[in-house]
Simulated scan of single mutants.
Amino acid sequence: MIVEGHDHLLGRARCQGELEGPLGLGEGTIGSVGVPNGVHTVDLYRFFRSNIALRAGVAPVRRYLEPLVADVLSGALDPSPVFTTEVSLEDVATAYRRMNRREDIKALVRT
């Protein structure tokens, strides 16, 4: 998924093509958070020639969890755009399989 911004290209680099896809869109920054499954090589010279910065790292969930939960519970933050499916507690294993196959991004578990 690529969203063109003013001077940054935002996306998720879940595979080789998603990492290299933004290279033809112009200069700026590509940011990727999380484990890039399926990315085996990175040709840094292509980024250098295109004047594109690559920023990547793990998602430091524990650093942001407490304030985000407080914002969700207060109604200041709507988390619904993140979820691509809803499942019951009994279907959690299926939801994890679907996320692993990249059929869903995040599952909301309703109890």
Rank of each mutant, 00 (worst) to 15 (best):
R49F: 08
D91K: 10
V58E: 15
V69G: 09
V82P: 01
E103S: 00
L19K: 13
T41L: 12
Y96R: 02
R12K: 02
P36E: 09
S74P: 03
S74Q: 13
S50N: 12
R97L: 04
V72E: 13
G57E: 12
D91L: 06
D78S: 04
E86C: 02
Y96A: 03
T29C: 15
H8D: 12
P81K: 11
N37E: 08
T111W: 08
L19D: 13
G17I: 02
G26H: 06
A95Q: 01
N100Y: 07
L89R: 10
P79E: 08
R101D: 15
L77T: 13
G26P: 01
A93T: 10
T29M: 15
F83Q: 02
D43R: 10
A13L: 06
T111A: 08
R97H: 04
S50D: 07
A70K: 14
T111Y: 08
S88N: 07
I105S: 00
G28S: 11
A76G: 15
A107P: 01
P79L: 09
T41C: 11
V39H: 07
L89T: 07
D91C: 06
I2Y: 08
M99N: 02
N51P: 07
K106M: 01
E90H: 03
A59W: 07
A76Q: 15
G28W: 12
L10M: 11
R98I: 00
T94Q: 14
A59D: 15
V109H: 08
V58D: 15
L73W: 05
R110H: 11
V42N: 12
D43H: 11
G24L: 05
V35W: 06
A93G: 13
L89W: 05
P60A: 10
L77P: 14
D78W: 03
L54V: 11
A56L: 13
A70Q: 14
L68N: 14
G28K: 12
L108V: 01
M1F: 00
M99D: 00
G5D: 03
Y96E: 07
R63G: 14
G24A: 06
P22L: 12
D78I: 02
F47M: 10
T29K: 13
S80D: 11
D91R: 14
V72Q: 11
A76H: 09
R12I: 02
L68C: 12
V39I: 06
D104E: 05
S80Q: 09
R49C: 14
V61W: 10
T41A: 13
E90K: 04
E27I: 00
G28H: 13
E90N: 05
L23Y: 07
G21E: 14
R12P: 00
T85S: 03
I2V: 15
R46M: 10
V69W: 08
D104F: 00
V33C: 02
G38D: 04
L9G: 07
P67G: 10
I2L: 14
N51F: 09
V82S: 08
A53D: 15
M99P: 00
F48Q: 11
Q16W: 06
V82H: 05
R46G: 13
L44P: 04
L25G: 06
V109W: 07
E66M: 09
V58L: 15
